[in-house]
Structure formats: C-alpha cells, structure tokens
Amino acid sequence: MLRMTLLTIIGALALFYIGVCGLLYFMQERLMFFPSPVATYPTHPAIETVSLDSGDVQLAGWVINQDSQGPLLVYFGGNGEELSQSTSHFVSLPATSILINYRGYGDSEGKPGQSGMFADAEAVVDFAQARYGKDRPLLVFGRSLGSVVAVHAAAEKHPNALILMSPFRSAADVATAQYRWIPASTIRWMLRHPFDVTTAISELPSRMLIIRTDDDRVIPPRETDLFIDRLTTPPEIARYLGEHNEPLSRPDIWRALQAFVANTQSH
C-alpha cells in the first residue's frame, strides 16, 4: 500500500514536471516578449518619425537630434519596452539617436524572435549609417534583452563604443537562475530563442560602458558579473541604487551617459 502511494506521488510529480516544462516550451514567446502598441507619439521638435525595411517587414521608430554634430547612437530596448516612451530621454544626449521598435512592437510589423531581431539590429545600424554618415562615430546601446541584441549588432558592425544596461550571458543562464528546479541542460534544450552572447564577446569594441545595479530582480546581478568577467578589456561601470526598470528615469545615469557619449567623439 505504501509502495503504491509513493509510486502515485512520484508519478504525479513527474506529470507535473513534464506539464510545466511543456508549458514553458510552448509559451516561451509569451514569457520572453511583451510587445505593445505605441503608447504615445512624440511631439518634441527634435524627434522625427522614421521607418525602414528589414527583410519582408517594415520597422518604425524615431530619430532624435538628427542635426546633431555628435556621434550616431543606436538603442535597443528591453523585452517590454515600447520605445515611444523612451524617446524624450535621448534628447539630452549630444548625439543623433535612432530608436526603432522591435518587430511586433509599436508600429513595427512582424513577430518578435531572436533571428528576426538580430537581422533587424543590423538593418537599423545600416539605416543609421546610410542616412547620417559612416564617417561619424557609432555607439550601440542595449538594455536588458536589448543588451544581447546590441552585442550581436556590435560584433557584426564594429561600432566605436558599446553601452550595455543590465547585460547577461544568455537567456538560458537567466532562466536557470529563475527556475532552479529545472536542470540547466533541459532549459537550454527547450529554448528556441537562446539569446546567447558567448561567441560574440571576443568581437566587441574595447570601449564599453556597463550600467548596472546590485538590486536587479529581473537580471540577476551575478549574471552581469559573469558577463563582465568574460570581457577582454575592463569596461567603465556606472552603478545605481534601484531596481531593473529604474535607470532610464535617473538623472545620475543620464549624466554618465552624456559624458560617455561626448567623450566618444574624441576616440
């Protein structure tokens, strides 16, 4: 009787485990991407609406300070970040900033996914340089999931400098920290969008700014530490006190960004 009860419990736990793993596998896009329509169309005179083609989809977003004599800056946001809400922050930077929503976000067509987002990142950099000049210094800036997109773009397009906010090594490493009861090997097998920067790190520019916090509950701070440990050249680091979604609203972070961007002109 006891043996039957134990077998029943073990069987139920096994079914529960398989069910949860199946749910994570088939719903991973809903757990990883949070697209939303344009929240508000910017009206600031320094912000211009633009669109571009990436393969068979059209992407839409904004250019800020197009008449700036400073560097070009291309920004890739987090997985829940519709970029119209971020445009006003970039007006203060001494650069021409290009913010294009990921496919499926805002007015951009298509559905989000790693391969499409990586292709879009390259298309956005090509658009920026074709429209505003390849002779201008180029910075690539990525936040959270966008840090992986930015790393891919940097490895392919070789910018003068790279800015990463809450970077990590791979989606599997972050998921393993969040779902400790699922073996790392199982998580890696399940992920259709691995967002892994391991092979790209050696191709990154030596000039880099990392923006991070020790209070991040989305990207474990240890993951950011391990990412930094893999870099061949120590980056500049700007720390802030606060949680994952706070830095874009912090004046101290924007002062650090302004200084880093301004200094890029002389490198």
Rank of each mutant, 00 (worst) to 15 (best):
Arg3Ile: 14
Pro42Ile: 03
Pro37Lys: 10
Leu257Ser: 05
Leu191Trp: 04
Gly80Thr: 03
Val38Asp: 08
Ala12Val: 10
Val74Asn: 03
Pro220Gln: 02
Met4Tyr: 11
Lys111Leu: 02
Gln85Ala: 09
Leu209Cys: 10
Ala154Met: 15
Val149Leu: 06
His89Gly: 01
Arg169Ser: 02
Ala155Pro: 08
Met1Tyr: 15
Lys134Thr: 11
Asp216Glu: 13
Ser68Leu: 08
Gly106Leu: 00
Ala121Phe: 05
Asp225Ala: 01
Arg131Glu: 15
Gly106Trp: 03
Gln129Asn: 12
Ile187Glu: 07
Asp173Glu: 09
Leu139Ser: 06
Val261Pro: 02
Thr198Tyr: 13
Ser115Phe: 06
Ala154Phe: 08
Arg131Ala: 10
Gln85Val: 07
Asp225Ser: 01
Ala200Ile: 11
Ala256Thr: 11
Lys157Thr: 11
Thr199Glu: 14
Val218Pro: 00
Glu236Trp: 06
Ile210Arg: 01
Val140His: 00
Val148Asp: 11
Asn79Trp: 05
Asp56Trp: 07
Leu226Trp: 04
Leu257His: 03
Leu59Trp: 12
His89Ser: 08
Gln178Pro: 07
Val197Ile: 01
Tyr25Gln: 15
His244Lys: 03
Thr43Gln: 10
Val197Glu: 01
Ala123Ile: 13
Gly70Asp: 12
Tyr240Trp: 08
Val91Asn: 00
Gly110Lys: 05
Glu246Tyr: 03
Phe227Gly: 06
Thr224Val: 02
Ala238Met: 05
Ala259Asn: 10
Asp53Tyr: 12
Thr213Ser: 07
Ala123Met: 14
Met190Val: 03
Asp216Gln: 06
Gln178Trp: 10
Leu145Phe: 05
Leu241His: 12
Thr199Leu: 12
Met4Ser: 13
Ser206Phe: 03
Gly77Gln: 03
Arg143Ser: 06
Arg255Gly: 04
Ala262Val: 06
Gln265Asp: 13
Gly80His: 14
Arg230Gln: 15
Glu109Gly: 08
Ala130Cys: 15
Glu223Leu: 07
Ile237Gly: 09
Gly113Tyr: 02
Gly242Gln: 06
Leu23Asn: 11
Asp56Glu: 15
Pro71Ala: 13
Ile201Thr: 11
Met32Leu: 09
Leu7Arg: 14
Ser86Arg: 00
Trp62Asn: 06
Leu138Ile: 08
Tyr25Val: 13
Ser249Thr: 08
Val218Tyr: 03
Ile228His: 03
Phe33Gly: 02
Ile228Tyr: 04
Leu164Thr: 05
Glu236Thr: 02
Asp56Pro: 07
Ala171Gly: 13
Leu15Ile: 13
Lys157Tyr: 04
Leu139Cys: 14
Pro251Met: 07
Asp53Ile: 14
Thr40Trp: 02
Gly78Pro: 00
Leu59Thr: 12
His44Phe: 08
Gly104Ser: 01
Val63Asp: 04
Ala177His: 06
Ile211Leu: 02
Asp120Ala: 15
Phe168Glu: 02
Leu99Ser: 08
Ala238Trp: 00
Ile9Thr: 12
Arg250Ala: 00
Pro205Ile: 15
Ser185Val: 04
Asp53Leu: 15
Gly78Leu: 05
Ala12Lys: 12
Leu191Glu: 09
Leu138Glu: 05
Ser88Asn: 10
Ala177Asp: 07
Thr232Gln: 12
Ser97Met: 02
Phe34Tyr: 15
Gly110Val: 05
Phe227Leu: 10
Asp107Cys: 08
